[in-house]
Write a protein that binds this DNA or RNA. Structure first.
Lengths: 227, 227
DNA sequence: CATGAGCGAGAGCAGTGCTCTTGACGTGGC
DNA sequence: GCCACGTCAAGAGCACTGCTCTCGCTCATG
């Protein structure tokens, strides 16, 4: 473990692991988490099922790894979408859109991380840092540009230390906005907007705009960005 | 089929069907949809697996029936919670709370209907009417008491005929509110609020209140209910 | 009362996750 | 240079799944 020589052996192992994860993600994207079978992954990668267990402890662990990769993928997109040079509301919208776009591109992975968890399978703690990345991006925008007055009327029921940089008054509406983002993307993805929402992009943007107002981001072309 | 005498035979069939559905719901609640096995349902009900297929065509059909029952259960709760005699915001909050309470009592069933669908399993059309019941209750409140002025700034991107009774300007924010309800309950249920939201009831009520404002429900103790 | 529809039981197919044992292979230490 | 050890793929096997088909029984109905 500790004094393992980083020779060809270790490299081969890393490559095989990657091949397994890639194939698993492919199957996940194609048929969903329920249809993900260790045996068929093995078949496709070109080895026998038992050999896969040298690389991944169980089907659950495979799913956990995919979950982390998915969280990181959305998180990275969200972080990349935010350009601190642009006005706050544009940052906000860009991040929202990035999450939605990623979700539409990777519905099965979005469902895996934000959909209903399989009871009995508690998402392990190591997923938490990756899971927080999107929330942190949104929180940063709120922290830098949110008007604390927008938090009037909201009770302080959220642990303030979760988003230390955010003005305490805005922590609760920020969590609400985060929830709304998740709910809106989820409803679109899982088909609840079928025959209901016509122009989904426009609808999504409108929800994002309302959420921006809720967390006190300054109006779009106000005289000064800070007033 | 058509000329079936409603004798003891039919009654026995109905009882067996109920027993199967009840046992299935029990297992669903205990271990989740993924662990629901037709064979183990049969075992528990006291018959052999193949016999179950006389009553339910497939595992998917079993899930579909459970989905409809679940939708009807929340819908019924939501409908019962609304007392038209009370002020609009109280109706609103009561319905929201009813949905949340039901979800906390029946997490697996909530996950089944509002969680991520299994790809490859398209929820059949017969689930739609049951699925709409909660939305209809909320829409009724908006239709009766919502101030259309609250819809200013929202684009008209939702098919107005979906909620015919609701003022067109309020249809889009109403859909947004419905989404927020779903997202908030989902986040709480699926553990995303772990270590984040402290007083979840208060938080939930606050979100409900904000949503009520978004759909133009009159303030709580305004001079006149209609102004 | 005879008969046929409805039903339960059982065997069987193809697939799953996971474990254990066996045999081969490459590598590091002597 | 050689040999032992650690790593690996493979196969057999267990217990389970969804689903189908066939076989007889039994009971309500014509």
């Amino acid at each position: 473990m500790a004094a393992m020589p980083p020779g060809t052996r270790a490299r081969a192992r890393a490559e095989t692991t990657r091949a397994i994860l890639d194939e698993a993600r492919r199957q996940l994207a194609e048929q969903g988490a329920a249809a993900l079978s260790l045996r068929s992954v093995a078949r496709e990668v070109g080895m026998v099922s038992s050999a896969v267990y040298r690389y991944v402890a169980s089907r659950d662990e495979l799913l956990t790894r995919l979950i982390i990769e998915a969280y990181d993928a959305v998180g990275e997109r969200a972080e990349a979408a935010r350009d601190p040079q642009t006005p706050p509301r544009e940052q906000w919208r860009a991040v929202w859109r990035a999450v939605r776009t990623w979700a539409l591109e990777h519905p099965a992975e979005y469902a895996l991380v934000y959909g209903s968890p399989v009871p009995g399978y508690a998402a392990p703690a190591e997923t938490i840092p990756a899971a927080e990345r999107v929330a942190v991006v949104l929180a940063t925008i709120v922290a830098e540009h949110g008007d604390p007055a927008a938090g009037d009327g909201w009770p302080a029921v959220v642990r303030a230390d979760v988003l230390p940089a955010v003005p305490p008054a805005l922590v609760t509406p920020a969590v609400g906005a985060w929830t709304q983002l998740y709910g809106t993307v989820g409803f679109e993805l899982f088909g609840q907007y079928e025959n209901v929402v016509e122009d989904r992009e426009a609808y999504f943007d409108a929800v994002a705009e309302a959420a921006a107002t809720a967390v006190g981001l300054p109006a779009r072309r106000a005289g000064r960005p800070d007033s």
